[in-house]
Amino acid sequence: MLELRLVQGSLLKKVLESIKELVTDANFDCSSTGFSLQAMDSSHVALVALLLRSEGFEHYRCDRNMSMGMNLNNMAKMLKCAGNDDIITIKADDGGDTVTFMFESPTQDKISDFEMKLMDIDSEHLGIPEAEYHAIVKMPSSEFARICRDLSSIGDTVVISVTKEGVKFSTKGDIGSANIVCRQNTSVDKPEEATVIDMNEPVSLTFALRYMNSFTKATPLSNTVSISLSNELPVVVEYKIAEMGYVRFYLAPKIEE
């Protein structure tokens, strides 16, 4: 038996909106640690890893580890029926083939339940080792989204370069080229508006903007985003989910032939 009660139900709505473009079907794994997911896009270029820790739920009951295959578009359709202030409870029976989403209005005067069919998904799980990154850039998530959107009107790829001068986002296309440099600025009024660059070694990597733009669908989840870069590794774009966990996106770089 599984029963997870999330008071801030809007978080789950935002999580689904942030990943449903990248991944069609995925297994949600439920254990004593929390509610999690790891899934790759169909071309195996990008991966999403989600963790909502059990402590973040008001009530968390998971009698034994469960993996529930869901179509994310269908799940998003159901969660769209929850109000932004609603409490969402996820319920499932061991070995059952459905999951129920229960929505409670804050005043408890409207209670809805939506039952969704589960599916069998053969998903490939990747082992992602802990890594020391050459550079980690933390910046306002809205600024990162703006940069990705702006550059994708000029080119298809972005070169992200970190030096002691700052972080540079560059693109080239048929109509011309663009460079956006963000310098470290820790003297802003609010910490979430700061750009912080933690660099051990200069790094420069090229990525497809289409995927970066898809990742920025997670912007409503967090005021800040952290971008971890190493010359030999996929980039990690992480949005922290307040007091609960994270959504991390991994993207394989473009490599010179």
Binding site: H44, V45, L126, G127, A208, Y250, K254, I255, E256, E257
Partner: peptide, 14 residues
């Protein structure tokens, strides 16, 4: 020109 790599080049399947 650069070519898109895939994640399985970097991470092992488990």
């Amino acid at each position: 020109d650069s070519k898109q790599s895939t994640l399985t080049r970097f991470f092992k399947k488990v």
